[in-house]
Amino acid sequence: MSIEVRPATVFEDVKALVGPKRPDASVCWCLSYRIPSTVNNAMRGEERGAFVAQLLEEGPLGVLAYDGDTPVGWAAVAPRSATTFARNRRIPHVDDLPVWSLWCIRVRPGHRGKGISHALIGGAIEFAREQGAPALEAYPLDNRGAKVDQTMAYAGLRANFEAAGFHHAADTSSVLNGHPRVLMRIALEGPPMSGGTS
């Protein structure tokens, strides 16, 4: 299997990964950390998908992994200043660099365990680098090998980020599914990495 990671620009492909099976269902659409909670909580059903379509007109919302023409994975990537992590008291700011954040990884059922999350992290690194980000942060679970509920694994796992070259930059006071979250960071200045495909 050859996985290609591309910027997330096609609405139907984004919808396949983070949208609902029923158009009127009020699923996350990966908006929870992207927009203020008051705006996020006020939107219902099809309004949420329409909002994502509008955001896509302004540019990619992250990256998608493709197996051929089929979208099989998603990673949300954006400047931290444009997300709720800009003001999140549980996730510290390490310094004043205008870092980007990678906060959600999702792989479609039936495609897990094939290295797609690793390809998504590599693709997110390259995407953020191409956008001029000086560094990329993530806030994964430090599960220390313990089993993680798939519905709560969207933040990613520390070991996967370490494998991609991220380093532990700070502890956080955020806990998800009983596991502490840590702030991981990778510097993006310098020569490009070989990544984004697997």
Rank of each mutant, 00 (worst) to 15 (best):
N88Q: 09
R112F: 11
A153G: 01
M193G: 10
S173Y: 12
H179V: 06
G49P: 07
F51N: 05
R144L: 15
K15A: 15
I35Y: 06
E46K: 11
L188F: 03
R144Y: 08
D24L: 02
G132K: 03
S101H: 02
I125E: 00
S32H: 03
T70W: 02
F85H: 09
Q131R: 10
A128E: 01
Q54N: 10
R44M: 10
A153D: 13
A170W: 03
S117W: 02
R44I: 06
A82S: 09
E46D: 09
G178D: 12
L64N: 04
F11D: 12
N40K: 05
E162F: 03
P60N: 12
V77D: 09
T70V: 15
E137P: 11
K21S: 15
H118G: 13
K21D: 13
G19F: 01
K15I: 03
K21L: 13
E4N: 13
L97E: 09
A138Y: 12
P20L: 08
L136F: 00
A8G: 10
M152D: 12
A25L: 02
L64E: 11
P140L: 04
G122D: 06
T197W: 04
A187I: 02
A119T: 12
N143I: 01
V72K: 07
V94S: 08
G68L: 11
A146F: 09
S37K: 10
G132F: 09
A170I: 02
P140K: 07
N177S: 15
V94L: 11
C28I: 02
G73I: 05
G195F: 02
S117R: 05
I105Q: 05
M184T: 14
A133G: 03
R106F: 08
T9S: 03
P7R: 04
L141R: 14
L17H: 04
R108S: 15
C104I: 04
V148A: 07
L141V: 05
L102P: 04
G68A: 07
G165M: 08
A146M: 02
E58V: 01
A78H: 02
A25I: 00
A159M: 11
A42C: 04
D142G: 04
D67A: 14
A138K: 00
M184Q: 14
C30G: 00
K21P: 00
D69A: 11
R185F: 01
C28N: 11
R87F: 10
P140M: 07
A135S: 13
V52P: 08
A138G: 15
A25V: 01
G115T: 06
F166Q: 05
D24V: 05
F166T: 06
L141C: 00
T151E: 15
T84F: 01
D149W: 04
N160C: 08
G115V: 11
A82N: 07
G115Y: 13
V182P: 08
P140R: 07
T151N: 12
Q150Y: 12
G113Q: 13
Y139N: 08
W74K: 10
T84V: 09
P92W: 03
R34W: 00
G113H: 04
G110F: 13
E162D: 07
T172E: 14
S194Q: 05
D149L: 07
R22M: 06
G145V: 09
K21H: 02
A119I: 07
G195N: 12
S26D: 13
V10I: 12
F85P: 01
A42P: 05
V52G: 07
K15W: 09
